[in-house]
């Protein structure tokens, strides 16, 4: 039916598939242009390294967006958890550091969710407010990097098994876990229902507030994990590591690039993984071509908007 309309390549595919096709195309271009240089172990590892932290955050962001919400506070939360973890690990307690970082994340997510559902504050404002609150605390307590993570914890950031970095495996685990939640658990089904139509979900007996709160907790936990990963890379916590990386808006961009509708109810983790990889591969390609780093931003902006234009067109046809 619609598969044949228009004749454009993208028309027959779902958004998530479009992303992976684009990914393949970019890899092919890289292979042609760069020859052997592009598909080296080094670039492949680099792509995985680069995308792991953003990938983890974006997977969490996918949950929030699917439920019809969004989270702008992930970037500062990454900074916060990197510091919490590093400060505690300084004492040698790695497990305690991890636990504390995750606990802090869960609380932040809980507060976000409750403010959005119970106080009925628009998610944009609620999580922007949370951003400011955390940023204030960070700026007040820290001037620069603080804490130290033991060498044992740095394995997470730098080691690899064969061609696969541990950080990429962590990302894969997080993505698989979220995919599992979305496709195999009642909670996952309800996330789609709430994002699709809150009223229909409520009439079907879904406790909609609880679903939104849980997605925010999970989203924040993902940010916390990304914070841990960055702490292990830096060897310390840093108050601006999250915001410098632009994880808030970039994670949203990656989710949307992966074909998840910003309004919620449609999309999935697979597309997001593709979106993150696409951004990272583009990045590598540009490095290979020695393109100016600012040009990368321009292309990234164009790619994101263009992708949504394509998805919107498709939805109409």
């Amino acid at each position: 039916m619609s598969e044949k309309v228009g004749g454009r390549l993208s028309l027959g595919f779902r958004p998530a598939q479009v992303v992976f096709l684009a990914l393949l195309a970019v890899v092919a271009i890289g292979a042609i242009v760069g020859g052997g240089e592009f598909l080296t172990l080094e670039t492949v590892v680099g792509i995985q390294q680069r995308s792991a932290a953003l990938g983890i955050v974006a997977v969490g962001q996918t949950l929030a967006i699917l439920a019809g919400s969004l989270d702008l506070s992930v970037a500062v939360l990454i900074s916060l958890t990197s510091l919490v973890a590093a400060e505690i690990m300084q004492t040698g307690d790695v497990a305690g550091g991890i636990a504390a970082a995750l606990a802090v994340s869960a609380v932040v997510g809980l507060v976000n969710g409750v403010v959005i559902t119970k106080l009925k504050v628009h998610a944009f404002i609620a999580t922007l407010g949370m951003t400011l609150v955390i940023k204030g605390v960070l700026d007040h307590l820290y001037d620069g990097p603080a804490g130290r993570v033991p060498d044992s914890f740095q394995h997470l950031g730098y080691d690899r098994i064969g061609p696969i970095p541990v950080s990429a495996m962590l990302w894969a685990c997080v993505a698989l876990a979220c995919w599992f939640v979305l496709t195999r658990t009642r909670m996952g089904y309800q996330v789609y229902a709430v994002g699709g139509d809150v009223e229909v979900a409520r009439l079907s007996g879904v406790r909609t507030d609880r679903v939104v709160i849980v997605t925010h907790v999970l989203c924040s936990l993902c940010a916390g994990i990304a914070g841990l990963l960055l702490a292990s890379r830096l060897g310390a916590g840093a108050p601006t590591v999250g915001t410098d990386g632009g994880y808030d808006l970039e994670s949203i961009a990656a989710v949307v690039l992966g074909g998840t509708a910003l309004a919620g109810g449609k999309g999935g983790v697979g597309g997001t993984v593709g979106g993150v990889l696409l951004l990272a591969v583009l990045d590598s390609l540009f490095n290979l071509l020695e393109v100016d780093s600012f040009f990368k931003d321009v292309v990234r902006g164009v790619v994101i908007v263009a992708a949504v234009v394509i998805y919107v067109r498709r939805r109409k046809s």
Partner: peptide, 9 residues
């Protein structure tokens, strides 16, 4: 958001 990236880049 795209415009933001494009402009600053």
């Amino acid at each position: 958001l795209g415009m933001m990236l494009i402009l600053s880049g």
